[in-house]
């Protein structure tokens, strides 16, 4: 069945040994899907907490007064685009196109960072202008903890993808081509330098698994965008 597995000219074949499992699904991929199933319950619990309190106290705060739905819509757009880039990156990885994969990964990270900045801006705006804090009302508690947890997921995703980007850099990558203050780059170099040049084609699976995580963060945002932001604009609803 795997007689062509030894053919090293075919990068696709390098993945074959990984698939030698009882189901043909790679271990890492299966574990990631199980993790995502588990993460559904994580976010399910958080979202229920938020929605329950919105339902019990529909009039305590009027979030539409300070929500900026255009910004949030833009954030959604950004995340969806990052998902596209992630998918393309995985696709490139499977083809053995490392440079392409790295470009798309950098794009994904860039969009992820834009999303995070949007969230920082939004939190800042809510705290400063709307006076909404963790302890100003139960809405503040549930809102910040829910969207904050999602933000932490995005941040971890950015970190994860950054690691793979660093890994995919060629071994002779020269750090001095990066311009910028020494102190800014120092910690980044310390963390990422050991990774450079480590990407091998069999790691396409790892990128794919990181991608699954990234897409999941995206679909969680699809739910949050609707359940936390959009429905607030339908005032007659108490669910």
């Amino acid at each position: 069945m795997s007689s062509h597995a030894a053919n090293t000219d075919d990068p696709h074949a390098a993945l074959e040994p990984l698939k030698k499992t009882s189901t043909g699904i790679e271990n890492k991929k299966l574990a990631m899907w199980a993790f995502l199933a588990s993460d559904c319950m994580f976010f399910g619990t958080l979202i229920s907490t938020h929605l329950i309190y919105r339902k019990v106290y529909p009039t305590v705060v009027e979030p539409t007064e300070f929500f900026d739905i255009e910004l949030t819509g833009f954030s959604s757009f950004i995340l969806l685009m990052s998902s596209l880039l992630m998918a393309l990156s995985v696709s490139a990885a499977h083809k053995g196109n490392i440079a392409g994969m790295r470009r798309f990964l950098l794009g994904t990270i860039f969009f992820g960072l834009i999303f995070l900045s949007g969230q920082v801006y939004e939190f800042n705006h809510f705290v400063k202008d709307a006076g909404l804090t963790l302890s100003s009302s139960v809405f503040g508690s549930t809102f910040y903890v829910l969207t904050g947890t999602h933000g932490v997921h995005v941040a971890l995703g950015v970190l994860w993808l950054s690691c793979w980007t660093a890994c995919s850099l060629p071994k002779d990558w020269a750090w001095y081509t990066l311009r910028g203050g020494r102190f800014l780059w120092l910690p980044i170099r310390v963390i990422f330098a050991p990774m450079v040049g480590r990407y091998k084609h069999e790691n396409a699976l790892d990128v794919e698994v990181a991608g699954l995580y990234w897409h999941f963060v995206d679909i969680v945002w699809i739910v949050i965008f609707t359940a936390v932001y959009l429905v607030e604009y339908l005032p007659i609803l108490g669910f």
Partner: peptide, 24 residues
């Protein structure tokens, strides 16, 4: 991918959806 991935994920998704609904 193989159907098993979908099944594993759906188990979590369905239980989470059911739990949220019941809580609501």
């Amino acid at each position: 991918d193989r159907a098993l991935c979908t099944i594993v994920f759906l188990i979590g998704l369905i239980l989470a959806t059911g739990t949220v609904t019941a809580l609501m």
